[in-house]
């Protein structure tokens, strides 16, 4: 009698666990759709990690909430029942299990995350030297089997509230970042005033830009298209307006763009922060004195106006 009860319990629990696992696996697949397009090699591996954590997280969440829901639905005290529940102070086996399992899980997650971060190696060669001195293996850093960009690193210059990109070999200045597809892209990040953050959601990469420091940054775009580049580290009054486009294009198109841009005489780029600040009549201004935006830069290649409309106009 006791035996059959026990088997029944195990069967029920097993069935529930399998059902939860199936739902969790499905949720893990859904997770890919919650993210922007995968426009870089880094995006592919980060999304896999995210999907894995969503799967695991769904299982835990449903397990805990399902248990609580069962209690709430079926274990309420009767209206006039003033008796107590059973006096159970604990269960050593259970407590060891629910300490050991999370411990193993987080070690697993940390190991997996480490592996992926190591593959990404977005922080450039200087940082890698540093990692090696800490005794961490970086042999796998070369998994990104894409050729490196043949040119010098592109300089990213951030200032309140302008993104400016400088291609040293062609002496091109641009307010739109053009990158060749399927090549390891190298950037040099500099800020001229405050902290800014280089963030392209479609690439899943982000790095704060720190005044007084030069940061090497690299990643590999793999999908042609036009993506948003946003300032991700709060930089003052016009922070939200500090956005532009990244254009990933084929090697030929990229080379053609370099030639065309180099041949274009510099013009004054549109800058939204500067425009808003200097607008003659701003109906919603309080008159609080703010930091004056930097003047719009002179560029060979200005950002696309249809994806970067002047303020007051939506797309």
């Amino acid at each position: 009698m006791m035996e059959s009860m026990k088997i029944r319990t195990i069967l029920i629990l097993g069935t529930i666990a399998i059902a939860l696992a199936l739902v969790s696996l499905w949720m893990g697949q859904q997770a890919y759709t919650w993210l922007p397009p995968q426009a870089s090699v880094e995006a592919e591996s980060i999304d896999r990690l995210f999907s894995f954590l969503v799967t695991l997280g769904t299982f835990i969440f449903l397990g805990v909430v399902g248990t609580l829901t069962y209690s709430v639905l079926f274990q309420q005290a009767g209206k006039y029942d003033t008796s107590d529940g059973p006096h159970i102070e604990g269960n050593l086996t259970l407590e060891i299990v629910w300490t050991a399992i999370p411990f193993v899980l987080v070690v697993w997650i940390a190991g997996y995350s480490y592996h992926i971060y190591d593959q990404m190696s977005i922080l450039g060669p200087m940082d890698h030297v540093h990692v090696k001195t800490m005794g961490m293996a970086t042999a796998e850093a070369a998994t990104l089997d894409t050729p490196e960009m043949k040119t010098h690193p592109i300089e990213v210059r951030a200032r309140q509230w302008v993104w400016e990109f400088y291609y040293p070999e062609q002496n091109i200045t641009s307010t739109e970042l053009h990158l060749p597809s399927n090549q390891r892209v190298k950037l040099v990040l500099r800020s001229e005033d405050v902290l800014h953050g280089f963030y392209v959601p479609a690439f899943r990469v982000k790095q704060d830009i720190i005044p007084g420091r030069v940061i090497d940054f690299e990643f590999t775009p793999i999908r042609e298209g036009r993506y948003r580049l946003r300032d991700s580290q709060y930089s003052g009054t016009y922070f939200a307006a500090m956005q532009t486009d990244v254009v990933v294009e084929s090697e030929q198109a990229y080379q053609q763009w370099l030639i065309d841009a180099a041949a274009s005489p510099p013009i004054v780029a549109y800058n939204r922060a500067f425009d808003e600040y200097n607008r003659a009549h701003n109906p919603i201004s309080t008159g609080w004195k703010t930091v004056e935006p930097a003047p719009p830069p002179m560029v060979n290649a200005p950002a696309n106006r249809s994806t970067n409309p002047p303020s007051g106009q939506s797309l």
Binding site: E42, S45, I46, L49, F50, L53, I109, A110, S113, Y114, I116, Y117, M120, I122, G197, Y199, P201, R204, V205, K206, S232, Q233, Y234
Partner: peptide
């Protein structure tokens, strides 16, 4: 998890 945080940090 650092790789995920790199994407969603400050979002």
């Amino acid at each position: 998890s650092v790789p995920i945080d790199i994407h969603v940090n400050n979002t």
